[in-house]
Amino acid sequence: MQKLFYILFLFGYLGAAQQQIKASIKDSTKLKAKNVFGVDTFGTLYYATENYAFHKKERDTTITYTNFQLGEITSANTFNPLKINLFYQDFNTVVILDNRLAEIYKIDFNVIQPYKNVSFISTGFDNTIWVFNQDLQQLELYDYKTNKVRLKTVPVQSGVIDLKSDYNNCYMLTENYLYIYNYFGSLIAKHKNSGYEKMAFSKGHLVLKKENQLHILSKNTSEIELVEHPKMLINQFLVTNETLYIYDDEILRRYQLKLE
């Protein structure tokens, strides 16, 4: 009886271990963009073109925001469509737009005291953004309405590669580790970076790129799993809930993530 229990347990374990995340192609869309920053659950596209313009494309309409003085957009966070954050690293400036792409706030870190040399930003809760202070090598939750730093994390010892967040967590990928913080700034998880170069995040699903292969850290799990997908050159990728988007050669492909 005991041997039978162990045999059943072993088969169950092996069956679970063989499960993997698979990306199945659903459809594709032609899109000419320099950078694709977001796709929401309704299919609204947020992207930038070569002329420094930021676009919000819905089914029948496209609206545009352009700031020629600030030039090229380094990153854009569209997690909160009512407060879209555009980061212009060359000018150390963040512009916040509403859902009609009207400018509602501008944060020029060059004139704010104390001065901040910012290399990454991402959305926080309320009137905050996560900023990586390059000079201090630390992550800060900055309240742009009050010009106050609500919290600071312990400085990191390696270069930062990417930063993503929502209202609850902030994910910071460095050359050595992936750090996960909660909204109190407490470190809740830490994973060794084994070659990850970029990441995308949505509703608890974190997708990481390593060469031309994608990996996923799903919500409520501690293991980074390989995603099975067609071999292709991955220039840009996004995730929205359980939907993966890969952009290359002016084609935006949509995949469904599912457990096999």
Rank of each mutant, 00 (worst) to 15 (best):
N147D: 15
K231N: 14
L214T: 00
L217C: 06
K56Y: 08
N67R: 09
T240E: 05
L8C: 08
H191R: 03
Y47F: 12
L136G: 00
N220D: 15
M199C: 07
K145P: 05
K32N: 12
N67S: 07
S158W: 04
L31D: 04
A16L: 13
A189W: 05
Q137C: 10
T128P: 13
F42W: 09
V39D: 01
K26W: 11
L178S: 00
Y181N: 07
L217S: 03
L187R: 11
K22R: 05
Y179V: 08
F237S: 03
T41E: 13
F184L: 14
Y142Q: 04
S165F: 00
K106Q: 10
P230L: 14
I224G: 09
D249W: 11
E225L: 15
L82K: 11
Y88V: 01
I188W: 07
N80R: 10
T78R: 04
L259I: 15
E250T: 10
N127S: 15
V131Q: 03
L257T: 01
N147T: 02
T221Y: 05
N127H: 15
I63M: 11
T78V: 15
I21S: 00
K203L: 08
F184Y: 12
T41D: 10
D143C: 08
V227S: 03
F11I: 10
L208M: 10
Q157F: 07
Y179K: 01
F79Y: 15
F87Q: 01
R100K: 08
L8A: 08
P114H: 00
N169S: 13
S218L: 10
Y245E: 03
Y179G: 03
Y52Q: 12
Q20M: 13
F87T: 02
D162P: 12
K152E: 15
T146A: 13
L97V: 06
E211Y: 05
E140R: 00
K83W: 12
D166G: 08
T44N: 06
T62R: 10
K258A: 05
E72V: 02
I224V: 14
K56I: 13
R59K: 14
L178T: 04
S222A: 13
F201N: 07
N168F: 02
T174E: 09
K3L: 11
T243D: 05
A53E: 14
K198N: 14
Q20I: 13
N193E: 08
I251Q: 10
N133D: 15
H55E: 06
E250G: 09
T123C: 13
G159N: 15
R150N: 14
Q19W: 09
L163P: 08
L208D: 01
K57S: 06
V94C: 06
V39F: 03
G43F: 11
T146K: 11
T153F: 06
N220Q: 13
V160P: 14
I96N: 00
P230H: 06
D126H: 10
K26P: 01
G15S: 10
K210Y: 05
Q134E: 09
T93S: 08
N241E: 06
H215A: 09
E72W: 04
S194E: 14
Y255D: 02
I7S: 02
N193S: 04
T240P: 04
Q236F: 00
R253T: 15
K231R: 11
